[in-house]
């Protein structure tokens, strides 16, 4: 298992390096002058040039990249112009929020998605099935930022049940987590419904039932465990999209996470911060896929020997 994990991690390295190269080169062509943004309007052209030189922005792109990487491997991701703090510090202060929202969103995703999907499969053809599949269809189709605004309007503004955004206690988390999770929940509902249906018809389940095992034991022992496989695979595919969704949700709800930081950084041409947020988010994606691979390997030993 350890060897498998190590192999997966090693494979992830070129991905992160590649992403950093692409982002860095893209940013080099950003039509904004970071030195000017830093220097402000009253700075003379001399001052701007001096600042550009001090920030190393007058060097060729590969030199800048080389310097960036050599520092990054030591944990120094540069200094944010706008926030006036090391990028790593900014990420460290915002990451807990993103993590909180991501985990809560995944919780919503799995809770709503799996329960409604499995319930739909077990009661195939009933109103439970139709209702949960209709919800699933709508959940996939609703733009997350719109859903967020609708929730804000209905539950926070009209009903006054939740705060109008921002981070804080549990009450602040409910609406953003629902928004982040619902789209994914819809996918999981469809997926878990169909894989549960498949397994319900599989021979071993029929046998188990025929042997007179109680329904819930069949459900937990055979159905759920086997239904997990395609679901876990899907989770791996879903992650980059899920994290993109979290970015939008953070913006709608004024959630102080990494995604919001990234969008703000693009607005202000804060290049070290854009670099930092993109690479950090990419690493989140990569690490989650490794975790999911491991989960898959644990669920299905055949994968390990692949």
């Amino acid at each position: 298992m350890a060897k498998f994990l190590l192999k997966r991690l090693l494979l992830a390295v070129p991905v992160v390096v590649g992403i950093s190269v692409i982002t860095f080169v893209l940013l080099y062509f950003l039509p904004a002058d970071p030195a000017r943004m830093y220097a402000g309007p009253n700075a003379t052209v001399d001052t701007v040039n001096r600042i550009r030189h001090q920030l190393g922005l007058d060097q060729p792109v590969w030199v800048q990249y080389g310097r960036y990487v050599s520092r990054a491997v030591q944990g120094d991701l540069g200094y944010s112009y706008r926030l006036q703090m090391p990028v790593s510090q900014a990420l460290a202060s915002r990451f807990p929020y993103t993590l909180e929202l991501t985990l809560a969103g995944i919780f919503v995703e799995l809770l709503i998605g799996l329960t409604s999907g499995i319930a739909a499969a077990l009661r195939r053809g009933s109103w439970v099935d139709s209702a949960s599949m209709l919800l699933a269809l709508l959940g996939v189709a609703a733009p997350p930022f719109w859903l967020g605004l609708m929730f804000l309007y209905l539950f926070a503004y009209k009903a006054g049940l939740f705060p109008l955004g921002g981070a804080g206690g549990l009450s602040h988390l409910v609406l953003p987590a629902l928004t982040a999770g619902l789209g994914g929940a819809a996918w999981y509902a469809r997926m878990s419904r169909s894989s549960t249906l498949d397994i319900l018809h599989a021979d071993y389940v029929r046998t188990a039932r025929a042997k007179g095992l109680p329904g819930y034991r069949v459900l937990f022992k055979h159905v759920l465990r086997n239904a997990m496989n395609p679901i876990v695979t899907m989770a791996g595919m879903d992650i980059p999209w899920f994290i993109s969704g979290v970015v939008l949700v953070e913006i709608v709800f004024g959630w102080p996470g990494v995604g919001r930081l990234a969008v703000d950084a693009v607005q202000t041409a804060d290049i070290p911060l854009i670099m930092g947020t993109v690479i950090f988010t990419a690493m989140m994606v990569v690490v989650s896929s490794v975790l999911i691979d491991v989960a898959q390997a644990w669920l299905d030993p055949r994968v390990r020997t692949d």
């Binding site: 039509p31 904004a32 002058d33 970071p34 000017r36 693009v266 607005q267 202000t268 041409a269």
Partner: peptide, 11 residues
């Protein structure tokens, strides 16, 4: 556009 881009273009 983003403010930084407008500032750069205008200048």
């Amino acid at each position: 556009l983003a403010s930084s881009t407008v500032i750069d273009d205008a200048g």
